[in-house]
């Protein structure tokens, strides 16, 4: 199921659809405090965009954009952003994830700093969720395929 699809309709439609899907997911992430949605939902939709790319254009085309190694690194970076913002608040003298204290670093009032901190946490959550969902999808769907790649690596 990872292989390239030969169907013209699915291939062209998903080619036209994937960029808009990714920008919609980023919109859901960035506007998490105005409208429904947030980091988790946006990350899942982002992963769904890459899943559509894998299913329609094959794994090789997707590897150019997001390889497995990059997915692993991105999941760690997402957790690092989330925990880093929390620990930064802790260092600045507040509780864990007490965003108001971020106003000591940023040149804004505490309410604005709270909004920015939530945005940063949502970006981190979205990166982690996207990378982990994509990795789970690849692990499930590539079992028993591409043995020759493993042999050449060894």
């Amino acid at each position: 199921m990872i292989r390239d699809s030969q169907d013209v309709i699915v291939k062209t439609l998903s080619r036209l659809l994937v960029p808009f899907m990714v920008i919609y997911a980023l919109y859901v992430i960035m506007h998490g405090h105005h409208s429904p949605g947030g980091g988790f939902q946006g990350g899942v939709i982002l992963a769904a965009g890459f899943v559509l790319l894998v299913v329609s254009h094959g794994l090789e085309q997707t590897r150019k954009r997001l390889s497995e190694k990059a997915a692993g690194v991105l999941s760690s970076i997402g957790v690092f952003i989330y925990a880093g913002i929390g620990a930064l608040c802790l260092i600045l003298g507040g509780n864990y994830l007490d965003y108001g204290k971020l106003s000591k670093l940023l040149p804004v009032v505490p309410a604005e700093a709270r909004s920015l901190g939530i945005l940063g946490v949502e970006i981190g959550v979205a990166l982690a969720v996207m990378a982990v969902m994509f990795t789970i999808f690849l692990v499930i769907f590539t079992v028993g395929e591409f043995q020759e790649d493993d042999r050449s690596e060894k």
């Binding site: 080619r15 036209l16 994937v18 960029p19 990714v22 920008i23 980023l26 960035m30 954009r65 997001l66």
Partner: peptide, 16 residues
């Protein structure tokens, strides 16, 4: 929005 669009266009510039 501009940052998001630049990231997306960098990833998918050859699809559209």
């Amino acid at each position: 929005g501009a940052i998001c669009c630049i990231i997306t266009a960098y990833l998918f510039h050859d699809l559209l």
